[in-house]
Design a protein around this nucleic acid. Structure first.
Lengths: 233, 233
DNA sequence: TGACCGTAAGTGGTCTGAGGACTTAGGGTT
DNA sequence: AACCCTAAGTCCTCAGACCACTTACGGTCA
């Protein structure tokens, strides 16, 4: 087995076996090199791999530690790769977001958190008052994020957040001829979701969230160029 | 900015800017070092990070390439980290699987693929005939995987597959006093899903899949030790 | 006695140079 | 035309040295 792979397997094994739990500190690099039988360069490349995946953390001057191994944190690391996925793949991810977020929105409506509706109302007031693309994206994330958090599953919140962040890179809300129509449709969608939550109607909340996100998917599809047709000779 | 981070940012920028699309080849390491202004060690650590995330691929003797940037492949890389998540976090992930897979199962039922039911029936025949834990896990994955594939969204298939793989590490089907009861319940759940697909009843399929996975979650919860209570002095 | 600060040990971060291992393409041979 | 061999190109691994940061200890001063 290659040196880096050997180090990678060894490090993962130390965690999987339970020898090192969340937050535990690894031995110093020279000691690990000796234990795993690889050079320092190979060990460091293996450490970098696991750090990229959110499994371990290196702290300069302090040591190398097992991360909290919290699924939400690990999923957040995916934004580094998801942000590079082309539009075609983003559409598949948006369907995942639609399914999960409509579920989380229904759960939020069912929970009847008395503060949630007020909080969401304030966000929407600000959102409807601005036309700045960056502000829109930030407030939209705050709105959907608060709902997902209320839904009760942090992993769902993290996953939808990553996907939403990717979709947001396509500036749907750039000033253009359709800007006002798109903005109004979006604002109405948000109000419909809030109304369902206020009415404590999970089914309506799921439908409203699904419709709202599906609308975003349609806008994204409109950005997609038609598939190139292979020309005959 | 730290050297490795500088290299990481530079590499991602080369992809995000569109300068290098899926499958494109990076310049040789010495050239990249010069271009990014870092040493070879730092560059290699950055490359390893992105390789761990499924964004780029290094081929020994050939070169370094941008990956296909396919969301399903990128999500598959998650298994390296998901497999290390403790039981508590797995339960959150199982809810994600339940939501996505019940949706995919409904979609598979709606699609009315004539070959699917036969294929699933053969898998279940084998599954019901074996008591080997490894075979059970393999056939269970084949059953649910085929359904998700029929659902039409490869990203959903990849995501549910990663989570299912993690859950499978907890050997629910180890020989024990409850083995037969658990196995029978599981088999019945599979048959109910197949029946809904055969009947082309999406709603029943979603319900059956949700119930089946929820049952698995209950078995996993039973493995969870009670939270440790902090003892007073 | 307490708080503050400087110092030294411990640890990860970066650079450089060298040689090995693998892939690939091209030319020569059969 | 098919096969094999060679050589160039590229990534992989190792080793050693030095730098940067964190931490804890012990001394100093109020």
């Amino acid at each position: 087995m290659a040196a880096t792979d050997k180090a990678l397997t060894g490090l993962r094994q130390m965690i999987a076996s339970g020898a090192l739990g969340p937050g535990a500190k690894f031995p110093p690099e020279p000691e690990l090199c000796d234990h795993l039988g690889v050079s320092r360069s190979s060990l460091r490349e293996a450490v970098r791999s696991l750090a990229a995946l959110g499994v371990i953390e290196s702290r300069h001057g302090s040591g190398t530690y097992v991360s909290a191994l919290d699924p939400a944190e690990i999923i957040s690391r995916f934004s580094l790769s998801v942000e590079l996925i082309p539009l075609e793949g983003v559409l598949q991810l948006m369907e995942v977001r639609r399914i999960l977020e409509s579920h989380a929105t229904a759960a939020a409506a069912a929970r009847q958190d008395p503060d949630l509706a007020d909080q969401l109302g304030e966000i929407l007031d600000q959102l409807e008052a601005t036309t700045d693309a960056a502000d829109i994206q930030k407030l939209d994330a705050a709105f959907h994020g608060a709902i997902c958090t209320a839904g009760g599953n942090p992993t769902v919140t993290a996953l939808t957040g990553v996907i939403r962040g990717r979709g947001g890179h396509y500036r749907i809300f750039e000033p253009g001829e359709d800007f006002e129509a798109i903005k109004q449709t979006s604002d109405r969608g948000h109000r419909a979701i809030l109304a369902a939550i206020t009415n404590r109607d999970p089914a309506a909340a799921a439908t409203a969230a699904s419709a709202h996100i599906a609308q975003t998917e349609l806008w994204l599809r409109a950005l997609r160029p038609d598939p190139q047709v292979a020309l005959p000779d």
